[in-house]
Write a protein that binds this DNA or RNA. Structure first.
Lengths: 160, 160
DNA sequence: CTATCTATTCAGTATAGACAGAAATGGATG
DNA sequence: CATCCATTTCTGTCTATACTGAATAGATAG
């Protein structure tokens, strides 16, 4: 699945290994377990740390670096969404706004195209704003939201 | 942005072109506008049709095939999510269930690992179930949900 | 039936990115 | 200050896949 979402195989493998493993592992152990080059492990670990879902930890009496994955799936999901929003959505929205500005200035763009751009922008805007609201809900509220099920329609029809 | 989400450049370009263009285009026009090979257009169009976000239409007095994009951004988003769920999430969940079964049968997997797998599975399960509920909401209800904002917390605290 | 126009398939090429192994760096310890 | 070990950086190779251009298939009109 990872590959289809722009995550390379090695990175995904290492993360999976750290996620399911009960204790932190050092680079050597990872390389050996997955049969991949030491340097590859090093780079992949840096990437995972860049995503803030793997952390470096020290094990007493061992000077080598050890690594462990975040274990809370929900938290991990939230962190990755935040990160991707920042890296991918935000620049996209900025570019959309630039396009719309240019289009509005009338540089050969017809109204139809401009309208499409506005709708796209509005979609991103609404979605990210909503997400920002949800992301700051406490875990308990999030669980309630997830468990609403059919009650959702009633609730939205009445109160919202 | 497309590239980072596992969509290749040409496919994304063609879809963008069809999305912003006021009328259906034929393959020739697309190839020329984007300076890509005719065959590449043909394959990319097939892929886009596979995602159900681009449709073949006929233009009177012209025997060539013309193509147009779905224009409703929300609807497109929903369709793509559905499709990706089916292609990527569902098989992943099936594999997770298989792993859990094997782990439970005690094939050398420790309890810790099994517990991680269960949590991961539960996450997918909750998320997809919730999504299925939301996806069938009428557009108006969806908009209400998106516009809840700070009211969300109150609503969940009380009614949920 | 043949000519012409469109769309698809196929086979080879090009390219981007993953990966390995060697070299270099860093930093601790005696 | 030299040595040793862990880690990172660098460079070349390999692989997967995007892409092209030519060949093929299919349809329609004359």
């Amino acid at each position: 699945m990872g590959t289809r979402w722009g995550i390379n195989r090695t990175v995904a493998q290492i993360h999976a290994l750290l996620f399911i493993f009960p204790r932190p592992l050092n680079a050597e152990e990872i390389a050996e377990t997955l049969s991949i080059a030491r340097s590859n492990v090093s780079n992949s670990l840096r990437e995972l740390q860049g995503w803030h879902i793997v952390k470096l930890v020290h094990v007493m009496g061992d000077k080598r670096d050890h690594f462990e994955s975040l274990k809370d799936v929900w938290e991990m999901f939230r962190i990755v969404l935040d990160e991707r929003k920042q890296r991918e959505i935000d620049p996209t929205v900025a570019m959309l706004e630039e396009c719309i500005r240019e289009a509005a200035a009338g540089k050969g763009t017809d109204n139809y195209t401009e309208e499409r751009l506005r709708e796209l922008h509005s979609f991103f805007d609404k979605t990210t704003t909503w997400y920002a609201q949800v992301a700051k809900l406490p875990a308990s509220a999030l669980m309630k939201l997830m468990n609403l099920g059919d009650k959702m329609l009633k609730l939205l029809g009445a109160g919202g």
